[in-house]
Design a protein around this nucleic acid. Structure first.
Lengths: 170, 170
DNA sequence: ACCGAGGATGCTTGTACCAAGCAACTAATT
DNA sequence: AATTAGTTGCTTGGTACAAGCATCCTCGGT
C-alpha cells in the first residue's frame, strides 16, 4: 500500500501544517491533563514519572545517562533524582567502576508507582479510544511510533535560523 | 527494541499502552524542543504562542473566553496577555457590551509573529516528514486529528471532587 | 616503579526564570 | 447588594546555566 508517491510536494504543505497544529494542540491538552492529575492526588508528578519510567525500563543507570536519555540537563536530573530518592521511589547504589557516579534503580515502591501510573494512563486511553476500531488504533500506534522516532532524530537538528520572528522592541 | 505488537492476541491493551507511552514520549520531546527553541533566540515562548495562536484564530475574544479555550486559569491568561500586550503582539479593545472586559486582538506584529511561528514549525515538520510517503502523512494527520479531538473530549472529564481514578477499574 | 600535579568527568548547589494555580482584591454590571 | 471580569500576591513545579566539589585519569619527574 505504500509507495506510489509520484506527487512531489503540493498537498504536503497543508497536511504537514495540520500535523504541526495538531501536535501543538496535543501537547497543550496533555499538559493540561498532567497538571490536573498532579493536582488531583498523590500522583507522581510528570517530570518524576519520566525519570522513574526511564530508570525502570533502562535498568540501573547513571544520572548522566539518564539525563541524556531524557534530553535534559544533568542538574535538573540531579534534583529530580534527589527528590525521588527522598520519597523512596529510587535508590542509589555505588557504581563499582567509578566512585563519583552512582547507579540508579527503582525501589519496589518506585516500581509499584510506575506500574500504577501506567495502569492509570492506559485506562484513560483505553476509555478514550473505546470507539475506535482496532485497525485504526493499530495504525495510529504504528504511525505515532514512527513519528516520535523521527521527531527524536530530527529534534536536535533544528538550525538556529536567521529569521527574526519576534524582533524585540523594549 | 519493543516491537512485538505483531498478530498476537487481544492486542488492544498492548496497543493502547503503546499509544500512551508514545504520547508521553512525544510530549517529552516536544517540550524539549520548545525549550531549545525558546532558549535559542528571541522566539516567542511556548505559552505565549498558544495564546497568540488562539487569538489569531478565534478573532477578538475576551480573556475569559481565551482562558476557557486553552483550558487554563484566568490568572495565567491575564499575565500572559499582559506580557504580550507589553511586547506589542496583542492589543486590547474596549468591549462594547461590558466595560469590565476587553476584547483581545492580534496586532500586525503579533500576526506576523504568529505566521512566522507557523512557518518555522511547518518547516521543521516538513523536513522531519520528508521521507514519509504522502499517504502515511495524510493518514497520520487524520488519526492525530481524531485523537486530539477525543482527548479534548475525555480530558476534562474528571473534575476535582468527582474522583474516578481511584475507583476500581471501570 | 612510584607519585603527585593538572586536567577531565560525574554530580550537586546557587541562582534565576517561566508557567500555572489559588486566593484575595478592584471595579463594572445586574 | 450580589455577581462577574479581570488583576495581582504568593506559592509551587520544572528547567537551565554557572560555579563548585569530589573523584578519576594521565603523565612527567624522581
Amino acid at each position: 500500500m505504500p509507495a506510489e508517491q509520484a506527487v512531489q510536494a503540493p498537498p504536503t504543505d497543508q497536511v504537514t501544517d495540520d500535523i504541526a497544529a495538531f501536535s501543538a494542540e496535543f501537547i497543550r491538552l496533555m499538559r493540561a491533563r498532567q497538571r490536573a492529575l498532579a493536582a488531583a492526588k498523590g500522583n507522581v508528578r510528570w517530570a518524576a514519572s519520566v525519570i522513574i519510567s526511564c530508570v525502570a525500563n533502562d535498568g540501573p543507570l547513571r544520572a548522566s545517562a539518564l539525563a541524556e536519555n531524557v534530553q535534559s540537563d544533568p542538574s535538573t536530573i540531579s534534583r529530580q533524582v534527589a527528590a525521588l530518592v527522598r520519597e523512596g521511589l529510587l535508590e542509589r547504589r555505588a557504581d563499582p567502576v567509578d566512585g563519583r557516579a552512582s547507579l540508579l534503580v527503582t525501589t519496589p515502591k518506585g516500581d509499584a508507582a510506575h506500574r500504577e501510573q501506567i495502569r492509570m494512563r492506559t485506562k484513560h486511553f483505553a476509555r478514550m479510544l473505546a470507539d475506535w476500531d482496532e485497525r485504526d488504533v493499530r495504525q495510529f500506534t504504528a504511525l505515532l511510533r514512527r513519528f516520535t522516532d523521527d521527531f527524536e532524530r530530527y529534534g536536535p537538528q533544528f538550525h538556529p535560523g536567521k529569521d527574526q520572528m519576534n524582533a524585540e522592541e523594549s
